[in-house]
């Protein structure tokens, strides 16, 4: 009987994870796409040294971060995947969303400060729920760079 109720809870969690997870992911991607179009004017470079330009008078450190969690269903799928090996697409989309979201937040930060160009952009990814065994499922992405321009 106990085993049956465990299975029941497991199936419910799996269903909730699948339903809400997919919904949240679709919504997040939609929001990412619209904001990426809005912020396309802010240019981002990974170059260490900016080209000499008299309009680069002011500089400011800008950054964006996000902590994002995987859902129960995807974690289960990735567990299955670890038996066979290969691409774990459920985690790929998680990391993709987190990086793009952090990048957008950095761009928004630069825009708010009146800058158009960001140089020397670095990505920093950390798993913040380490030591929790199977619970690992949230990652933090921090993106930072130096915004240059006339400023405001």
């Amino acid at each position: 009987m106990a085993a049956f109720s465990d299975l029941f809870i497991f199936i419910i969690l799996l269903g909730l994870g699948y339903g809400f997870g997919q919904w949240a992911e679709r919504r997040h991607y939609r929001s990412i796409h619209t904001r990426e179009k809005e912020l396309a004017g802010i240019l981002v470079f990974a170059e260490r040294l900016p080209p000499p330009d008299p309009k680069f008078k002011h500089s400011s450190l800008v950054g964006g971060s996000v902590v994002i969690s995987i859902d129960y269903f995807k974690r289960f799928v990735s567990l299955l995947r670890s038996f066979i090996g290969g691409r774990v697409s459920s985690y790929e989309s998680l990391l993709d969303r987190a990086r793009r979201e952090a990048l957008l937040r950095m761009k928004a930060d630069a825009q708010a400060k009146g800058f158009q160009n960001i140089f020397n952009v670095k990505f920093e990814t950390a798993s913040i729920s380490k030591g929790k065994g199977k619970q690992i499922g949230s990652i933090e992405v921090y993106v930072y760079g130096t915004a240059l321009g006339p400023g405001n």
């Binding site: 997870g21 969690s69 979201e101």
Partner: peptide
């Protein structure tokens, strides 16, 4: 961790 999504508090 069940539903997925951003952890705003964190």
């Amino acid at each position: 961790n069940i539903f997925g999504g951003e952890l705003k508090g964190y």
